[in-house]
């Protein structure tokens, strides 16, 4: 639809601000979203104590000052690669999320980019679990893959449903199509599945079994110091980025009365974060084996039906 290189509203963040400031803006946004998610999560876990909101900051500083530990005969190269990849992929997924009404990149396949970053997380988390040469850590890594098998297809169908409605895989086109009616109204299943998958790829809340208490925190169990900081930050940024992406895909982006677009966008993102946390912390962890069954028997058919429904709406000219 719009040509990203033509300037005006179709312009990318990189073209509008210059590459370096744009990248910095994305990094800063990642930090803000990650901190926001971690702070809300911390408040909810502590039973609603507002001063717990500073705990993510405190833990981060603590990890910076903490000794890095190692294990006997670790696969150091792969371990460190995985640890670094988690936050890097999280930030990269933000490249196609609108910031101030523009995305850093705008390709004809933004949704594929976003999904690719999540798919690469499979490898990254696997390596984090594999690296330390430790039982619990490895079991955690296996669990992540098993869980990935459960959530990845529903996630792809959910993403593609938003693209289908807009007739484009470009994030800004999807936002523009929702001018009159937010996608969440016509594709609620895709919205919910997308948010649940976000929790799953950050192995958080009900999908935290790869880092479960029953395996001494699994893939996290051997991480201390800056390694722990990187992985925890990556998880928080993934969740924050997914919340922001869900606003673009399903909640009309920055549209809203009165306030400027970025403010609306931020408010909606914070609301989504609050909803994810308050729902996610109300329920126990799912066991991956049971979740796989649920996912293949119920979620995949549900998302397929959702896509079919949206396809019929597209044919009937429901979307502009």
């Amino acid at each position: 639809m719009t040509d990203p290189d033509m300037g005006g509203t179709g312009m990318t963040l990189a073209a509008a601000w210059g590459l370096l400031p744009a990248v910095l803006a994305v990094g800063l946004t990642a930090l803000v979203l990650g901190v926001a998610f971690a702070a809300v999560d911390s408040v909810v876990v502590s039973g609603g104590r507002l001063r717990s909101a500073v705990e993510p900051l405190r833990s981060s500083l603590h990890w910076l000052a903490q000794q890095r530990r190692t294990t006997l005969a670790p696969d150091r190269l792969l371990w460190r690669s995985g640890v670094i990849a988690v936050p890097v992929l999280a930030v990269l997924s933000l490249a196609v999320v609108p910031i101030g009404g523009r995305t850093l990149l705008s390709t004809s396949a933004d949704l594929v980019w976003f999904n690719a970053m999540e798919a690469l997380l499979w490898a990254a988390v696997w390596l984090v679990g594999w690296g330390p040469n430790a039982v619990h850590s490895l079991v955690g890594a296996y669990r992540f893959l098993a869980q990935g098998l459960a959530y990845e297809l529903p996630l792809m169908f959910a993403l593609i449903t938003a693209g289908l409605g807009a007739g484009s895989l470009r994030t800004m086109d999807i936002v523009a199509t929702q001018e009159n009616l937010w996608f969440v109204v016509s594709m609620p299943v895709a919205f919910v599945v997308f948010l649940a998958s976000a929790a799953a790829f950050a192995f958080w809340g009900p999908f935290a079994s790869p880092a479960g208490a029953d395996i001494a925190s699994g893939v996290m169990s051997e991480l201390s110091g800056v390694d722990r900081l990187l992985v925890q930050a990556g998880r928080a940024v993934v969740l924050g980025a997914a919340a922001a992406m869900s606003v673009a895909l399903f909640l009309g982006g920055g549209s809203g009365p009165g306030l400027p677009e970025p403010v609306w966008y931020l408010l909606k993102t914070l609301l989504v974060i609050a909803v994810i946390v308050s729902v996610g912390r109300r329920i126990p962890v799912t066991r991956p084996d049971r979740f796989v069954e649920f996912s293949w028997m119920i979620l995949i058919p549900a998302t397929l039906l959702q896509a079919l429904w949206v396809a019929l709406l597209v044919l009937s000219g429901f979307y502009p």
């Binding site: 000794q67 530990r69 190692t70 294990t71 006997l72 005969a73 330390p132 040469n133 430790a134 039982v135 619990h136 850590s137 490895l138 169990s221 051997e222």
Partner: peptide, 10 residues
């Protein structure tokens, strides 16, 4: 060796 964990700061 490859799977057992030693977790030691060694």
């Amino acid at each position: 060796g490859s799977d057992a964990d030693h977790g030691m700061d060694h």
